[in-house]
Design a protein around this nucleic acid. Structure first.
Lengths: 339, 339
DNA sequence: TTGCGCAAGTTAAACGTTTAACTAGGATTA
DNA sequence: TAATCCTAGTTAAACGTTTAACTTGCGCAA
């Protein structure tokens, strides 16, 4: 027989309502009674029934987590770490997470995730870029949404982002502090908000130190911020400038490509050229030299999203709309003081 | 106002019990009534409340999915695909999946996953190797368990495995069919059941074709079946045999290492030596030459686990204990007919 | 004609919580 | 001293299902 609130009430010598009030942290209960009840709960190893709770409170106690198939299956465990963060925080806020993936071909007449249709979540976390059609369909359900690492093109939703501008500043400052002046920016498509922001940080920090921002040192032509493009971009940058002493790559993948090119043409890193990346991807550790980079705390992104969503669910009139998670400079061996 | 079973009952002109019986597919209801009710459900877009259901039926409608941190965060999305399979099948069997990871340092006095403590799952799927202490603690909870890709050292649990023996046979047969006779086996630690079984399949197929099994062609010394070990093992194998014309590697990672070594010493694949791998990992596609391998249907592993678990939950006296998921030969360009 | 069995429903209790409304008694105010 | 307000609880209804037990009507055997 399962232990119920009645058993606890009897053991503590109070009514079931009192037990319930203790569980939900209601202030109407005196410290003495609270203690008694808490002890009874512990002694009996009681856990409230989610079903019974959900039935009367009209809450499910679940949060949905949506991302696209290819984000989930990526070899770089970026979104899996974010998920782990939400799992962790869900624990604290007493939620369960229901993870589901979406084909990236999601179209307007595809069915929504099951937990939406069956109303089995109190709120939804959306990680990474998802099809706009999904957001449109989701809006009608009036379920609180929170986005991670993606700014939806429409609507007014709470968002959790990493602090790309400050990351760009930190990376650039690190190079400046090492004595570099001719610092190149190796970027991808500036349409992507993250990349644009990292570039903003780069420019800002240069200006702050009275270093002229030269368009000849900035590469933003690459369609995708991947290794191969980093290789090409490094090549083209070097063909236009022969005095580059440092490179801030908009992400680690491009930094890897750049390092590969430099290795191929016999330029030593960090001997001749220092390189800073962004993201701190897993495979960096095996790199030679290990890459100095800006670490993005993926776990924290997830944690903050759950916090934000939890606030929304319990307390509708909340002001927080946007959370910027700070990033961190990780100094390894790809950067060096200029001689 | 949420639509309840009462609304459906009223609309269909029956009692709520009848609606419930229709939903649960009880045979006591006539076809006519069933149709009426189904129509009302559709018209009203009714979905039963999980909480209410759970409360009376004492089921949660959830399944737990446990794996270790490092399995979940692996760059090769093996377990993530298995999870996707369970998600997919959960849909069919009307369950939700609660995913949680475990530190691989799990010890006897670490707390069990929250869904176990709070009794918020009807059954649990365990994927990959997990600490024995976990299984021991879990056993006491009397929750149905199913293992995927791991044979626990104790207890009698239903398991879902890939068919390693038949995979080993298929790979070897493919090479034999191409005319190869001097076929090496590149393996890791035979303590690992999967590797041992693949070796069994290899030997069996050779014997079937009256090819002598030579221990000089079999390498099982590698502690871990990883790329670096494949490189070493290939080297050592070649130093002992100068007439190897084909290699069956116990997994793709080792196959990759072997190919790397052959490339380094100038032996053409598949010109001089054919190679077959096992697993069909994602990165194979970018390989040159693309690797012929045995594909493991990860999705199916997940699907079968949910099926098995679902049977256990609804129908305790089920016989099925072990499900072998068939594997499939994928012919690419690393194998060639012997000239 | 009576009695029985069966098919196809219905009735109503039960599941384990939360919470609005109520209460008892002490403290504060007028 | 009487009226009022708090504080710290209690009572009981409600949430939306499932299901054991009951009912009704019909066909069939004796």
């Amino acid at each position: 027989m399962k232990i119920t609130i009645k058993d606890v009430a009897k053991k503590a010598g109070v009514s079931t309502a009192t037990v319930s009030l203790v569980i939900t942290n209601n202030s109407r209960i005196s410290q003495d009674t609270r203690k008694k009840v808490l002890k009874a709960i512990k002694d009996l190893d009681y856990t409230p029934s989610r079903s019974a709770r959900g039935l009367v409170s009209k809450k499910t106690g679940n949060l949905g987590f949506i991302l696209t198939d290819d984000h989930f299956l990526r070899t770089e465990p970026f979104y899996t770490r974010i998920f782990l963060g939400t799992e962790f925080a869900a624990h604290v806020h007493d939620f369960y997470i229901l993870l589901t993936t979406l084909p990236n071909t999601f179209s307007i007449d595809d069915p929504l995730p099951r937990f939406v249709r069956e109303k089995n979540v109190d709120g939804i976390i959306i990680a990474g870029k998802v099809p706009t059609t999904l957001i449109q369909k989701l809006e009608k359900y009036k379920i609180p949404l929170v986005f991670i690492d993606y700014v939806p093109p429409m609507g007014e939703f709470p968002i959790v982002l990493m602090d790309n501008i400050s990351g760009g500043e930190t990376a650039t400052k690190h190079l400046i502090d090492l004595g570099h002046k001719n610092i190149a920016f190796l970027g991808g498509d500036v349409q992507h908000p993250s990349i644009a922001d990292r570039l903003v940080g780069y420019k800002r920090m240069l200006e702050k130190h009275n270093i002229t921002v030269s368009s000849k040192l900035i590469s933003t032509g690459s369609p995708e911020p991947i290794k191969e493009e980093g290789y090409k971009a490094m090549k083209s940058l070097l063909s236009k400038n022969n005095n580059i002493s440092a490179v801030f790559a908009c992400n680690d993948a491009m930094a890897l490509g750049a390092m590969q090119y430099l290795k191929d043409i016999g330029i030593d890193v960090p001997g001749k050229i220092s390189i800073v990346g962004f993201d701190d991807i897993e495979s960096n550790i095996f790199l030679n030299p290990p890459l100095t980079t800006i670490r993005v705390p993926k776990i924290d992104l997830g944690v903050e999203a759950v916090k934000l969503l939890s606030e929304r669910i319990t307390n509708k009139n909340i002001a927080r709309k946007k959370v910027l998670v700070p990033v961190e400079l990780i100094i390894r061996e790809s950067t060096r003081k200029i001689s």
